[in-house]
Nucleic acid binder design. Sequence first.
DNA 1: TCTCGCTTTTGGAACGATCCAGAACGGCAC
DNA 2: GTGCCGTTCTGGATCGTTCCAAAAGCGAGA
Lengths: 350, 350
Amino acid sequence: MSSHAPIGRKVTLNDIAAGCDVSRATVSLVLRGSPLVHKLTRARVEDELRRQGYVYNRAAANLRRRSSSSIALILNDLANPFFAEFAAGVDEALGAAGFVTLLGCTGESAEREQAVLGSLLEHGPGGIILSPAERSNAHDVLAVVGRRAPLLLFNRELGGTLPEFAHWDQLMLDNQHGARLATEHLIARGHRRIAFFGGHHDSSSCRQRHAGYVEAMHTARLRTEPDWRIECAPTRLDAAHRASALFDATHTPTAAVCYNDAVALGLMLGLHQRGLRPGQDFALTGFDDIAEAALGMPSLTTLSTAPHERGRQAAQLVMQRLQQPQAASCQTIAPVQLVVRESSCPPPTA
Amino acid sequence: MSSHAPIGRKVTLNDIAAGCDVSRATVSLVLRGSPLVHKLTRARVEDELRRQGYVYNRAAANLRRRSSSSIALILNDLANPFFAEFAAGVDEALGAAGFVTLLGCTGESAEREQAVLGSLLEHGPGGIILSPAERSNAHDVLAVVGRRAPLLLFNRELGGTLPEFAHWDQLMLDNQHGARLATEHLIARGHRRIAFFGGHHDSSSCRQRHAGYVEAMHTARLRTEPDWRIECAPTRLDAAHRASALFDATHTPTAAVCYNDAVALGLMLGLHQRGLRPGQDFALTGFDDIAEAALGMPSLTTLSTAPHERGRQAAQLVMQRLQQPQAASCQTIAPVQLVVRESSCPPPTA
DNA sequence: TCTCGCTTTTGGAACGATCCAGAACGGCAC
DNA sequence: GTGCCGTTCTGGATCGTTCCAAAAGCGAGA
């Protein structure tokens, strides 16, 4: 009753050819819409394809054509909405172009990244979109990827630059500029003691955002205390735990530029638990503009990165590279935009 | 300088065989760890594999073996953290077992679902995990999938049951029981006028949750007004917009059982905008226990579904089916657990 | 009828792996 | 030397497609 019938032998080109009395080659031409086949023949073949329920075997075709119809997407953290939306954008654009997305998650582990890269490469992707794990480095990635597929680096740079590095395309966010904008905004609001909260110094994007913060502070002739640089994992949970570190400083800050939205939302919670009202007693900004940012209480001032759109862009860049393997490698820096909301209040004393 | 060198011809079994003077067949045996090859031969071959930087071509192997090493994962909405975490769980378990995840997003469109299914099938996945779009129906899915791969239905049932339906495995959440628990909890807190907020009646999971709510209300001999059933898309944004509908009712409710966490968080925002404090002036519950639920202000009482774990489970179920294609189809209902937090306060008048 | 040129069709060799039947080898007993 | 056995290795066919060179079909003009 509920047992599965045996999966019947797959229908192949030969079956179709036999079914309507033409050669395998002709059926193949029909499938690919060649103008060489006669109208009537085409119609007969197409009927037969439908009748037998034929499904194209792309793997076999790719083998013969030495082509590929898939792109590997390797992410450090799918649970982060920023990457989830990015992935949705990648898949949308790839799917529209007839490519299929091979997914791989690394969970911020460089070892898993190696394993995942190796495994996905065996499936012969035409290209790779890689958002590297925090400790990932160029040498190891090069060792496993080599010249087997073009690579697009997203969001973070890799540690340990190599000569071959120039062969990889890059799609980065304008981290330094964005953090600078956020910091300038807080300064304009009247803050003088501003912390930089969250992220690890291992990550290039974090270093860049920190640099933007420092740049803005120095330009405004404001000091930056070592106490005002608080590291934590780029997750809500860890940020909430580390919130208290802000108030261990000798000069306690009145505002914080956060590494990203996840960290900022976590910090809000941490402040809340200390009896402080974010957006009233303490100002903060995020980075990424994930969906929750607009809906938080208070809503979060942040830098919009349009992750879905970045995903589509990444897909475009990889497909472009497939068409022109010899073109010079490109380094794209996506602009970010300051979105002012409630969390970036003036300091309470002002 | 920064131009790409031509991607060299791929290293194949033949190259390795020639390189260490054995036959192609022997190299193949080495790759698969066969005990038939002599220890010394094995060592020589393995050296050569490393020396030439060989990468296994799984597509070619699968073609000959008529096997598959991939599973298709088709989701209605990756931007929802519930599904993103589910996807991470699926990928984790599949990756550990040597499978690769073929990703496809449908964006709640049944047409896209058809297209995505068709496209992914051409890559010959060994199985399919499908979280259907809202309007998806069994007939259309059967027409494109047929017997070409075993299918696991996740989270939602399909409209329009068919005789062949029994061939598909299912992994569902215990929606009715969960919603009942949430409703009973609110009743125990002292609420009498409770609404059911969000979701569409098209979705089987929504109907089940609503049924659980009705069950609890009737068991407690409480009335349910038609005004207290407010539909909206299962997203934060739409829920926020529809919040006011709660107060159009003749008897305004003091609490709401929400379709899921996204809706509940959106409703919180909507309440906030009306000057009501969720968790103080109005009680609500969610469903899913996504990461934000614990961190909200107030934190959200909800039903824990452990999406990451559900993902791993889904992967296990599909792989199990691959090993035993003939076994009876299984319908798994994953338990859910009530997590009481701040949002489910007693009614203000109590 | 024969040849030319154009359209349409075709057989067989790839692609890179696996499978299978049997070969080569060495040792050991007769 | 011969037969037998177990271990180790191998050539060729095969999976489902594409490519290519060449064949077949067909009017028209000589």
